[in-house]
Amino acid sequence: MQNIKTIARREMRAYFDSLVAYVVIGGSMLGLGIFFFLFQQGGFWQVDRATMARMFEFMPWALTLLVIPLITMRLLADEKRSGTLELLITMPVKDSDVILGKYFAALGLATVLLLATLIYPIAMFVWPWHIGALDWGPVFAGYLGLFLFSAAGIAIGLLYSSITDSQIIAFFLTVTTLLFIYFIGSLAETVHHAVGDVISFVSFQSRFHPFARGLVDTRDVLYFLSITAICLLIAFRSLESRKWS
């Protein structure tokens, strides 16, 4: 436990010592601002409703294309390439500590980003402005959804980072997988219903959508948690496999 914390703390520092944290947080906030107020149906003001729905439309994009790939690509790939992994692993740490430490650091950074976006509902509906009566239920459910989305996405990214020593490859594999697994959700209604069922079972979009509408279904929660657990387990095995290669 102590070691997980030590490793996570070091990773977190590395995020803020490099540009990654600033690019991720700054880029997402900028994208969110532009999307929220300007694009699609004339932006937030044209919709004229006290809702955060636009945020939950945008954030999966940001997480998929920018946040998750950027914060996970270097986690293990870079350490393998530079050889620092050898020094880390030959210290008295368990392989699982390494995986979990890195995982929690990335999840921590994603959480910081999600907390930063809370400035939108708070500034508009609580203080200093109060432009309408916001229904907070869907907002909290939506945030829970985003958190679970990040948790599963980061586990996928970490898995890719554990099987390659190239950050670029890890980045593209993560983007591709997340894009695919998110947006196949849109296909669910256009194909044969048996196939459609399978698609909506695995798609992040169909799993995330209920959260954005304020519906917390334990099946969806379990789905994201299972993806997380499975990917972390594979990442752990992949790290372990260096011993036998």
Binding site: R13, G83, T84, L87
Partner: peptide
């Protein structure tokens, strides 16, 4: 690993620290 102090080849350290 507790009993050993190990220095790998070319001292791979975390450069940003």
């Amino acid at each position: 690993r507790r009993s050993v102090g190990y220095l790998p080849q070319r001292a791979p350290l975390y450069l940003e620290m």
